[in-house]
Design a protein around this nucleic acid. Structure first.
Lengths: 223, 223, 223, 223
DNA sequence: AATGAATGAGGATTCATTCAT
DNA sequence: CATGAATGAATCCTCATTCAT
């Protein structure tokens, strides 16, 4: 009764139950590359190795793919970073260094980077999704950092800066580095650069660009 | 309904020569808000106060609007910033401060910010446009900065850091600040924040987050 | 989950032979309610308590459900009514009254009414099905009636009318009554109305709406 | 500048401003013939002599065609019939005859008949449209008739029947006649039959099927 | 120059039907 | 027998582009 498996007849294969995840993987790649609007559901299907109609077995609409993408990405992203910070005590510079290196490694992974890139692109079109990301990721992470810095200041480890604004001074360079590379393909001369970027930045961040040991004598004070 | 076009009537005359610019203004706003694909030519026309068909009198296609947008934005952006840097001499920190403050002011203007935001969104879909922006803006500006930093190091004003990577430490926080605000509506507590961000960042950038070589001796220990 | 099919277990056994009928029941209800095109095979399956694929074990296509529906409905409908008429003799008014009351009762049953309603809806899309109904039901029943009336006229019981057209005068009001109720939910004030409709109609049908030859002499003039 | 009108290039014709009505005409015919679901917008467009997209210039959705169809049909249908009845006085039989003949003529016109047929088909799928028809047409017309009959009874012209149910006895035969013809193609032997149907029905309606002048003597009273 | 009606290719979504399990 | 995942043709609707006026 069962017809022989002709190699030329690839219809009606049934694959693992990981299908929804494969669809999301395909959608993520295409959404990031071409944008949500310009990506066709059929392309997502083809990339996931299924038919157009099958996408709708797992997701009720194209938009639901966006939502699924963000939902899937939220938990792992946050947990890893925050767990590291929670253990911190003493000089916050060690913690900041560790977190920045951790983040740099994580964001070096294209798969991890993809969702933030997608949200960056599509936030104006999907305000509620950006809102989810904001409340689930940023609203979790930023206060932790803020406290870390505030505590560092209170304990005398750090200069009395504005903690909330300082977060941008800590993280911003990594963001700029990624964006230059991703958007314009601009990588510094000299191979894999994220690690070097982080180390260079940590020096500036903690000790400053200036050379003078004696502040106030800066102007024209050099031998 | 339409009154005859009297050449001497200064009110409500439509200057035909300004039309393409008005179309670009409309396109820019909508592209940034909704993305290129999701913006309809008819909406651009309506916002520009003309008819759908008239858009095609000035631009041969929707894509040409993108190109026109980027071409129009390139010259003014670059010139302003680079002119300031070219004149610099002596301690580069003054120049860096000035440029950063200048940039912060410029990017505080939504009209100036719009094109970079658009390119950020649509770069994957319009690689050649991103390429134009890269070669016309970034490839002009980054080396100037790099030289500024390199010279500052050579002249003993700055710590011996990697100039190319350090640009990211200088500019990144401003980028991060803008993105948090634009994408997620995240502004720090306490009103207009870009100026405060820049001042806070300049302190960290030049002097570092750390207070001294000997933490713990910090509390009230400075003479 | 499914218990083994014990032949001796009378509860919750699914009688395989009854399955097609259950599918038809489900299809009939949905076809009447939503129309053929707007009814999904999956909904029929769910209502019949089986899976989508199983529908195709009993019926080769969706259209075959329509055909099965009409075929199933034909025999019982016709036989009941015609048997009554065949036995008639003498004054046909008694027979007409009986048949009309019988028909009204039958059509008061939603299950009996369903197929005619379905045919009414879908006849233009399924001409061959309408044709079947016409030849199997109408072509059987109408001539019987016609003869009944013609005989009544010949025997002097009835006014010399056109028998073929008169069938419409006999049956039409019942049809109108059903349609008003089914299509527009329009029922007369005062509860269950089909019986009253029939009795009211029989009076008019046999004796006429008019009171006498000499209107005006009518008020209280009958002995 | 204007290219010659090549007969083979039928693009971009512009026609009269009667376009929406032509679209409705096309939609009505196809909806009645094939049902709403089974009719493709493209078919409507082709029949109206325009392109698929142009349908959406006039109607926002396929469903809006249904609504437009019913809205367009409502006014003329009601007005004609009710105007006739309003003038009635004296023996209502004259009025009833006139209305019935008028109605029969109107419904003999396929264009007039189409919308009621459509509503009959699609009422279950468009309850709100059926509701409109009910309130705009039936709720206007039925009470007028009811009053006519009630007045006829009170004034001694008519037998004391239930006015509301009697409407069905008056109208039902016409409905039945139309339905037999439309749904099953069943026309009586002997040419154009609607007029004959009405005349035959009016005799029965006013004078009854029975022959006896002396009620009560019916059974077995014939010479 | 300006308009906007008209076009039709293109894309999201649905659903009858198939068949591996 | 029964299932329901998978398919892809079919259909609604959108919108960039054209061109008669």
């Amino acid at each position: 009764m069962t017809p022989p498996h002709l190699p030329g007849s690839p219809k009606f294969r049934r694959r693992a139950e990981a299908r929804p995840d494969e669809v999301l993987d395909a959608a993520l790649e295409l959404f990031v590359r071409n944008g949500f609007s310009a990506t066709r559901v059929e392309d997502i299907a083809r990339r996931a190795g299924i038919s157009k109609g099958s996408v709708y077995l797992y997701f009720p609409s194209k938009k639901a793919l966006m939502e699924g993408l963000v939902r899937r990405a939220i938990t792992p992203v946050t947990q890893g970073a925050l767990a590291l910070i929670g253990k911190s005590s003493g000089d916050p510079r060690a913690t900041i260094s560790m977190v920045l290196r951790h983040l740099a490694t994580r964001l070096g992974d294209p798969a991890t980077l993809a969702v933030p890139k997608l949200i960056l692109r599509e936030a104006p079109s999907f305000p509620e999704i950006a809102e989810v990301y904001k409340s689930e990721v940023l609203a979790q992470a930023l206060p932790v950092f803020e406290n870390l810095i505030a505590k560092g200041i209170a304990e005398g480890y750090l200069r009395p800066v504005d903690p909330e604004l300082t977060i941008r001074s800590i993280m911003g360079p990594v963001l700029a580095h990624i964006l230059l590379g991703e958007v314009f393909g601009l990588a510094p001369r000299g191979g894999p650069s994220m690690d070097r970027l982080v180390e260079n930045h940590l020096i500036i961040l903690f000790d400053g660009l200036g050379v003078a040991q004696n502040p106030g004598a800066e102007k024209g004070a050099r031998p």
